[in-house]
Design a protein around this nucleic acid. Structure first.
Length: 487
RNA sequence: GCUCCUGUAGUGUAGUCCGGCCAAUCAUUCCGCCCUUUCGAGGCGGUGACCCGGGUUCGAAUCCCGGCAGGAGCACCA
């Protein structure tokens, strides 16, 4: 029998997203990502960016990046560019960029229409009272005033005729809606705080349910992907679609993401930077894309990762192991190998004669050549203190690609018979003469110091420090500095 | 409290709509072994899951009912 028939073909790992419903019913798929510019993107944000981008590419659609900068107190002016960089790095192709802060008059117009149709009101009640009447399904005194009066109030409100916080424009849903989270919601509020992009030209700001519904409609969204924390917002926005007789996009809600021991909250990271806990947005301890980039995580690993997680409504607790495994698949074939010796100790070796060491730059790619070093008589190299202990305990160790070292009266070159490795002698990395100081920044923020052989790599390259892990080279001079990715 | 959503191995995921081909897929993790001058890669094998209880049915991860558990929302944040 043909032996190849016995071998079961390895199934390809499927990371394909399921088809998106409703794509056949529209002429052109239009989707969006809607970041709030309060900081750069983190791993959590990358999920919706990747999913939208994947679908838009699959269906040859259009992707809009809409900056949701409707809360002037939360906007970080630098975030606009940081987010653009993050998206570009991820390989997300944005066809159009929209700023909500350019569209305030449009939101006012829609609110006027809604109010004119009797679907909105301007409430001047104390906010506590308004909320309290809502939970007991009762209309506040403002809600049922005649439309003319509501329109007068709205004009006054829009021309700053009220003090900040005194009035708010509200959209009616059903005051006795069984779901308290869906009853009447605020659409416009007054904030006397300058906006990074519009200064003090406007002080009436839309709440997301108004601006999002208006924009999703105006920009022709066919499919909207969002976290399930927006489930009730979707219900609220559906009232606006209904009142305005707009076609609704299809909505999809995916579950929330958490990653053990990882901070994925922009505000928390921002605070940590302010109080000095973190060194910046790319501090390796945080979950920003900037930090992951610095650690040598490839955008394609992130894309594959989210494609596999998909869009289920269940909350997911994802683990770094899965992401790292995907990253390793990508970088392993192209990462040059070098010896890095953490916690180095001297190894003075008695030797007479000439020898040359030789290790492949990459074990699976011989064409990349060898790393070689020449030795004449007694020599001095460095090995890791743990391996020195092993040498003492066992009496022998092998310097990878070079020779065996025996520990007797003195340390001596013990030939390079590789048979010893079959007897359990450890093969270790070592730092030849001419090695330079190196520091590896670990994910916990600590630094591991040591020696690294002269390396033929460039800044930003991913390399593997043998028996240590994959690292990204951050600088080569005056000393080698690298950032740890994963084993 | 109210409303909504969801429950497949440690983790992620396939299967659930249209019951049988599911003694449940793939990946990762962990543990062995093989290979390899790395604790990387590769190969082989193993541990490990349909939340619980009823019902319908010849047959249920899949349909129905009831529990239970987890999550989200009830903001002049997004």
């Amino acid at each position: 029998m043909d032996s190849t028939m016995m071998v079961r073909e390895k199934k390809e790992r499927r990371t394909e997203l399921p088809d998106l419903e409703g794509c056949s019913e529209v002429t052109k798929v239009v989707m969006r990502i809607a970041p709030g510019p309060s900081g750069p993107l983190h791993l959590g944000h990358s999920r919706v960016a990747v999913l939208n981008d994947e679908y838009v590419k699959r269906y040859d659609g259009r992707l809009v990046n809409r900056f949701e900068d409707t809360n002037p107190e939360k906007v970080d002016p630098e975030a606009y560019d940081m987010i653009k960089e993050d998206l570009a790095w991820l390989g997300v192709e944005v066809h159009e960029t929209v700023f909500q802060s350019d569209r305030f008059p449009r939101y006012y117009d829609v609110m006027r229409s809604l109010t004119g149709m009797g679907h909105g009101y301007v409430c001047i009640c104390d906010s506590e009272d308004w909320r309290a009447s809502k939970v007991s399904c009762k209309a506040c005194p403002c809600r049922d005033l005649p439309i003319d009066e509501q329109l007068d109030r709205l004009d006054r409100f829009l021309s700053s005729g009220y003090a900040a916080g005194e009035a708010a424009a509200v959209i009616k849903t059903a005051i006795d809606h069984p779901n308290p989270a869906v009853r009447d919601f605020i659409a416009l509020r007054q904030v006397d705080h300058p906006h990074p992009r519009t200064g003090d030209r406007y002080n009436i700001y839309p709440m997301m349910n108004l601006s999002v519904a208006v924009d999703d409609h105006d920009l022709g969204m066919t499919h909207v992907l969002r976290g399930k924390d927006h489930l009730n917002n979707t219900h609220r926005q559906e009232y606006i679609y209904g009142y305005m007789s707009w076609n609704k996009p299809r909505f999809f809600h995916y579950g929330l993401v958490s990653i053990p021991d990882t901070i994925l909250k922009t505000s928390m990271i921002g605070n940590g930077i302010k109080d000095g806990t973190y060194r910046g947005w790319d501090d390796v301890r945080v979950g920003t894309l900037a930090a992951l980039r610095r650690r040598g995580i490839e955008p394609d690993a992130i894309r594959k990762f989210w494609s596999e997680v998909g869009m289920k409504q269940v909350d997911v607790q994802v683990s770094w192991d899965n992401l790292f495994a995907m990253n390793r698949d990508i970088i392993d074939p192209k990462a040059k190998r070098f010896f890095f010796v953490p916690d180095p100790v001297e190894l003075r070796v008695r030797f007479e004669g000439e020898a040359e060491s030789s290790c492949p730059v990459h074990p699976d790619s011989p064409e990349l050549g060898q790393r070689t070093h020449c030795f004449l008589n007694d020599f001095l190299v460095h090995i890791c203190s743990d391996d020195m202990e092993e040498l003492r305990d066992r009496g022998m160790i092998r310097l990878k690609g070079f020779c065996n070292i025996a520990h007797g009266e003195e340390l001596r070159h013990a030939g390079d018979d590789m048979e010893v490795t079959r007897q359990g002698v450890k093969v270790v990395q070592w730092a030849p003469p001419g090695s330079v100081e190196a520091e590896v920044l670990m994910p916990d923020g600590e630094t591991v110091s040591g020696l690294v052989e002269p390396i033929s790599a460039q800044v930003d390259d991913m390399v593997q420090f043998e028996r240590f892990g994959f690292v990204r080279i951050e600088s080569l001079k005056p000393k080698v500095r690298a950032v740890f990715a994963h084993r």
